[in-house]
Structure formats: C-alpha cells, structure tokens
Nucleic acid binder design. Structure first.
Lengths: 246, 246
DNA sequence: GTCTATAACGAGATAGAC
DNA sequence: GTCTATCTCGTTATAGAC
C-alpha cells in the first residue's frame, strides 16, 4: 500500500520535474511569452491534456518555474555565503553579490524570467514571495550582523524620505535603523542593475573585464550600506569617516 | 516634380509611422516576442506583403521601434536637462535620472524593449548604438562639466581594475580620469537597476513612496560619481557618520 | 519607379470531432 | 488519446495600378 503510493508519488515527482525541465529548455529557446503547454507535451511524447494533471494551467507552470528559479538563485547565494560566514561583512556582501552574478550568467533565461521584463498576461501570485525574498533576506542578514557588531555607517535620509524609511524598516527590517533599511533596498536594486546591464547586453563594447568591474562596483555599493573591512576602518579616505577602531 | 516627390515622401512617412504606431500597440498588448507583421498589416487594413516596402523584415521593424524608444527616452532626458543646465551638477544629475524614470513609467513596454530581457531570436544591429548612447553621453557630460569646474572626487580604483579603467576611459570618456569613468559606468547601471526594480514589480510591497525614494537613491549615486552641490564641497565627510555599539 | 494585391510555401499552433 | 481541418506566422514571387 504505502509502497504503491510511494511509487506513484515518486512517479509523479519525476514526471513533474521532466515537464519543468522541458519547459526550461523552451524558455531558453523561445522565451517565456511563447511557453506553450502543447509544445512541452509534444516534446515529452505526452498529450497536452495529460499535462493538466500536473499543472492546471500554463500560468501555474510558469509560476513553478519562477519559484524554482528564485530558489535556485537563493540557494546559490546562501551556499556561497556559508563559505565566508565568518569573514568581515564587506567580504560576505561581495561574495553573495558575485554568486548572484555567476548564477545569472549560468542561467540567463531564468534570470530574465524572474528579474527581466514581465511576461505579458501573467500575474505572479503571492506564493512566489518567500522564494523571491531569499537573496534580499540574506543581504539583510549581513547588514544586520555588521550593524550589531562593529556598527554600520548611518547616512541620514532627508526629511521627505523619513516617513517612508520608517515604514520600510518596520515592514521588512525591524532590527535595522531606518536609514540603513533604505540604503539596503536601494543597494539591492543597484546590484541588480549591474547584473542586468551585463546580462542584457548594455555593457557590450563598454565594459570588458566584467568580473573585476563587478567586484569593484558591488564593494562600493556594500560600502554605501555601511559595510567595511574592520581592519581597514579609518583608511577609507573621506568617503566614510567612521570611528577608528583597532 | 518636387511636389509629387514630396507627396510620395510624405505618404511614405505617414504609412511608416502608422505601422510603427500599430506595432507599438501590439508591443504593449502581447510583448515584443509576439510582434507579428501580419497582425500589424491586418489591423491597418493592408496586406502583409505590402509592409515589406517599409520594413524588409520583422526584425527591421523591431529595430526601428528600439531606435525610436531610445531616441524618445534620450529626448526626454535631454530636454529635462536643458531646463536645469545652469544649476549645480548634482541637481542636473538627479533631474536627468528623474526624467529617465518618468519616461519609463510612461512607456513601460518600450522601456522593457530596450532595457528588459532580450527578444528571443533578435540580435540588435549596430545602428542602434547612437540612439542607445544618448542618455549615457548626457550623464557623462554632467560629470565632465563637474570635473572641469569644481573638480569631482576621485575614488581610487584597485590595482586589478586599473587596466580596465584606463581602457574604458580611453574608449568612451577620453576627457575623464579613469576612476571617474568607471564610477560613471557603474552609476548608470545602478540607476537602471532602480528604475527596473520599480517598473518590473520588485518594489511591490517593499517601497511605497517610490518617487521620493528614487530621488534620494540617485542623488546618493550622483554623489558616488563625485557630484556635489558646490556649496557643500569639502563637507562630504560630514554626511557620513559611523556608529558603533560594543 | 513606387506601391499594393494575390497567391503560395513550409512551418507551426489550435480546436474539436472521433 | 488521436486525427484532421483550419487557423497562424514570416517570407517570397508575381502581376498589375499609379
């Protein structure tokens, strides 16, 4: 009984994942807008109606691919971070950003799916939110740790932004000062901009040594959210005047 | 003679632009991947083959739309800048960035066309480069002016990035120091990240007062390329206060 | 010379009857 | 599940109108 059920469940999981694999292949070839349940079925030697036992609609298949992509990116970022969890905050920040970039270069179509132009007619359901938040939460953890240990630079926000900053911090980063929460949100968007520019071709004929450029740019951004190498504190020139320690 | 030619030319321009108008409508409805010459022709009451007198292929139509979008964005940015051309560099920077954001919000599908995920199977020809460069050149002009008049802060780049920085400056910004050229390229990508995050929905449930947030974030980025309000020169360090708990 | 229309090709998607 | 009749698409060849 349980073995039969287990076998069925296993088979279901296997079919589900080959459907997603084929869908990802089509994503790479034709783009998300042209993802067609029928084509997936044909390629798998199934009939289109059979797919509906696994995914009730094309949008549900898309949603599954999106969640998988967010999770794959999140896992790449988290495991890269785990290897440097004991190092200074700026090093951890740069490492995570580099992992994001590398994942994006290795999975350009999935990156386009989650961070690129919206798919026409598709509206992502709230079920994508947890997976979508993983990298942001990871970066927030780095900044939080830095804030708790050595203290991060706080760049005062202008009065007009104060209410939004307070609300944002209360909403998503209750243990961070409002200024830092704002800096973090903006920093994450900026990192995404660097990755997007490279991936979508805007750096063609502009930036050649993209890895070095990226490492430098995200370390500047990390610096901007207040992260430093503790041993370098006080050497950063006039950009950041933190208390000297050491 | 001239009138007949003029009339023909006028008619040609008019038909060309109604083709592009209709194509833009379909872009908004279905996305660039599904742009179809036949559908455009049908909607205009023409026959598909007639379109080939105006655009030799579907890709050429796409290219025309892309160039138009870049030019429309470039013009929006340039005319916004013209209104504040005599103000301090940071104000000019922020104004141009805000114009970019506003154009993007007003033309989300065209923004997605030029800065979003690549259209599967389409390769942009070099003819798009001049239009694509307009905003970048405008921003570069602001930084150049600041560099010439009050001087901009130069943040030294690490040794590993030095060759790339020199190459980049020589290539695209011969009148800027290498460090500043690098900072500018990175800044432009970061501004794009902020706009993209907002436009593509990553700020949903995160940032509410997006206009204020954006103004603040891009002014920080402008600061990062060395722009300041002249009256604040020499006070940069004061903006940043380290904080420590221990 | 400049345009539009008709027809067709090969490839693919789709809806529905069976 | 299968098969078929009918759509779509980009593109080209051709013929004729202005």
């Amino acid at each position: 009984m349980t073995t039969a059920q287990g076998a069925r469940a296993r088979a279901r999981i296997e079919v589900t994942s080959s459907i997603k694999d084929e869908a990802r292949r089509q994503l790479a070839a034709e783009g998300a807008a042209k993802l067609s349940l029928r084509a997936v079925a044909r390629e798998l030697g199934m009939v289109s109606s059979a797919l509906y036992r696994y995914f009730p609609s094309r949008d549900d298949l898309l949603t599954a691919l999106i969640i998988d992509a967010y999770d794959s990116l999140g896992e790449a970022a988290e495991s890269a971070h785990a290897a440097v969890a004991d190092t200074p905050s700026l090093r951890r920040w740069v490492t995570v950003c580099e992992a994001v970039r590398e994942w994006a270069l290795a999975h350009p179509h999935e990156y386009a799916l989650i961070y690129g132009s919206p798919v026409p007619g598709y509206k992502a359901p709230d079920t994508t939110v947890p997976a979508a938040s993983r990298v942001g939460l990871l970066l927030m953890g780095i900044v939080r740790d830095a804030h708790r240990s050595v203290g991060v630079a706080r760049i005062p926000v202008p009065a007009e932004l104060r209410p939004e900053a307070e609300r944002l911090a209360a909403d998503i980063a209750p243990d961070l000062p409002a200024e830092v929460a704002v800096a973090l949100a903006s920093a994450w968007a900026q990192v995404y901009g660097l990755v997007g520019f490279e991936l979508f071709g805007q750096f063609n004929r502009v930036i050649e040594d993209r890895e070095t450029f990226f490492r430098y740019a995200v370390s500047r951004i990390g610096h901007e959210v207040g992260l430093v190498f503790p041993e370098k504190e006080g050497q950063e020139g006039k950009e950041v005047k933190g208390e000297k320690e050491k």
